[in-house]
Nucleic acid binder design. Sequence first.
DNA 1: AATGAATGAGACTTCATTCAT
DNA 2: CATGAATGAAGTCTCATTCAT
Lengths: 194, 194, 194, 194
Amino acid sequence: MPRTPSENERIRRETKEQILKAAMDMFCSKGYHSASIDDVAKQAQISKGLLYHYFKGKEELLAALVEVRISDILVVMEAAEAKKTPAEQIHHIIEGALEDVRRQPEIFRFYLNLFTQPRLDPIVAKYSQKLMDEQARQFEVQTEMFVKLGVVNPRKRSLYFSSTIQGIMLMYSTYPDTYPLDEVKTQAIAEFCC
Amino acid sequence: MPRTPSENERIRRETKEQILKAAMDMFCSKGYHSASIDDVAKQAQISKGLLYHYFKGKEELLAALVEVRISDILVVMEAAEAKKTPAEQIHHIIEGALEDVRRQPEIFRFYLNLFTQPRLDPIVAKYSQKLMDEQARQFEVQTEMFVKLGVVNPRKRSLYFSSTIQGIMLMYSTYPDTYPLDEVKTQAIAEFCC
Amino acid sequence: MPRTPSENERIRRETKEQILKAAMDMFCSKGYHSASIDDVAKQAQISKGLLYHYFKGKEELLAALVEVRISDILVVMEAAEAKKTPAEQIHHIIEGALEDVRRQPEIFRFYLNLFTQPRLDPIVAKYSQKLMDEQARQFEVQTEMFVKLGVVNPRKRSLYFSSTIQGIMLMYSTYPDTYPLDEVKTQAIAEFCC
Amino acid sequence: MPRTPSENERIRRETKEQILKAAMDMFCSKGYHSASIDDVAKQAQISKGLLYHYFKGKEELLAALVEVRISDILVVMEAAEAKKTPAEQIHHIIEGALEDVRRQPEIFRFYLNLFTQPRLDPIVAKYSQKLMDEQARQFEVQTEMFVKLGVVNPRKRSLYFSSTIQGIMLMYSTYPDTYPLDEVKTQAIAEFCC
DNA sequence: AATGAATGAGACTTCATTCAT
DNA sequence: CATGAATGAAGTCTCATTCAT
């Protein structure tokens, strides 16, 4: 008795989700290169064959995860843009970024790791670039906020802001147990939100 | 007649140096996991066998490079400590860190990549930890400088300072062609050196 | 449709058997250290990868073969114990041991070779020890037979018996073409079975 | 100032001796295949290069050791032949063989290991064969003793005798700490020397 | 949709041997 | 006589991917 098409569709979606979650888990805990397809399939509790049925290969898993990451960034930025004043907008970016790294420091580490991957790595570089492109696009949006805020050199200020936030995220994800994220967040808000 | 011990010593030193340089090159351009021993040997223009004559394995190459990195960090910090006023000291740290990343952004990227490697990676974690330990030690030294500077909460300030510097280095090494390092450096000096 | 679990089970069993047979062949003809995994895989007409799919490594092949050997020894000893009189029991041990070496002198040679391997060989020693332990256990059983036989010093007699049988097996497996196994067997039976 | 020819000759002999001793040590403790040329050179406290100056390769080391073994066997057999009565002759063989294995069980193990090496092992087989040939030659000498002793079937008796002695040596070298060599020796003498 | 048996390229490493000095 | 730097073939093992069912 064959499944109905809609049921098939649901199974497909759920299984894909399950695989992506497993891939994120394994990539985070072992690294993209060290995590094997076997690891991912076992974590997702499916067979290797089925994994290949859903994703063309290891690379496509990475691609899908990067897509998710990009859309996550977009969500935060769009929510920020929806705020009325530029101060609120920047405040929202800080909150969004720092609360995200607080929730899932390993995931941030993973993307940062991707980012710092050698550009010659034939597979990884492509997706690293995608992330960089998206970040550059969001940088323009953010700079516009500093323009509205009326600072002297908005582009430079925006860059310094990004550097600081990235640095905080880097350090928190490195020392998640001891880094006083709240206090540092306050300091950042004080410096950039007026 | 055998070679004299001193000549052997010279050959050993030079070949080791050559290998380490090749290893740094390949690890930077392909990443630690993706660069093969073959790659390193070819880059160093020696046989795989000779590489193993000098280093017990791939891991020992990494260990040696990490040692070099740690001693580089130490040199900057000691030079900073030798300065008379705390403002000069912090200024020297900023200069040291940012000029280093300007000279060799890929090398900074490589160590950052090591840093963001999953802690479960059995080989890499050990050396990543070594770097973290050294950085923690240097953080204490740096905090002492902020104490002397008389800021309100020196530890918090020191942390925020480190986060900012790390963030700048991260972003510069990501966009070495467009990032206005000089201007950002000026901004950082203005913020932290008084 | 996937294969049924039972069919997979069958395939696994058969392939494993095939590999173990090939391993025994190659170990016998080239020795444990000299036979390469490639040799075994080729002999079994499978790929190296599949071999590793079934056995964790070369050592596990050896382990599996030693298990088989131990169970072979057990079978003979249990059959001997089932006999009614001690004379019959000892007679059965002689028959079992000598007919085994007659059927497969190379296999006996292989295990003897394992036995005489240096204790420091990190891999081999473990399995050599397993064989020795089992032999020691069987020696106790055998000594009990000599007790029942009523000889003066049963332990010493049992040891002398074992030495003789081992020596015969050693010499037959060394000169299988010329050694008069039947006549020597008769001599041994005459000496030990009354 | 060059050495005198005779001094050179002495150095050569001593160094060769030293190397052979080191080779025996390493082969016994690690096995012929597992012991590396480096191991032997280090044990002999000389350089690899010098070892190759004295011996063409690993195989020649084995050859030289086998020569030594053969001449050791010969010494015992000739001493036995010099005895007056056949009973004394056989007694001397027993003493010679068993005291030898008592003194150096590992060395006996090593040669037995060589003996049980697969015949296809291209290197080892040759020397294993040499040992077998010599043993066969000595077997004839020994059989003649049993002829003089007046036993019914001297050839068969001689074979049974060899098997027993070999078995005792095998078992003693396997359990040197617990095997009651003296008592078993007495038993063997009682059985074969009258 | 689903399984896991099967493959083969390529990774790390060891080691007998050669050679310049 | 003596050294140890240097080589390269061969070995063990991993893993992304394919395929029959």
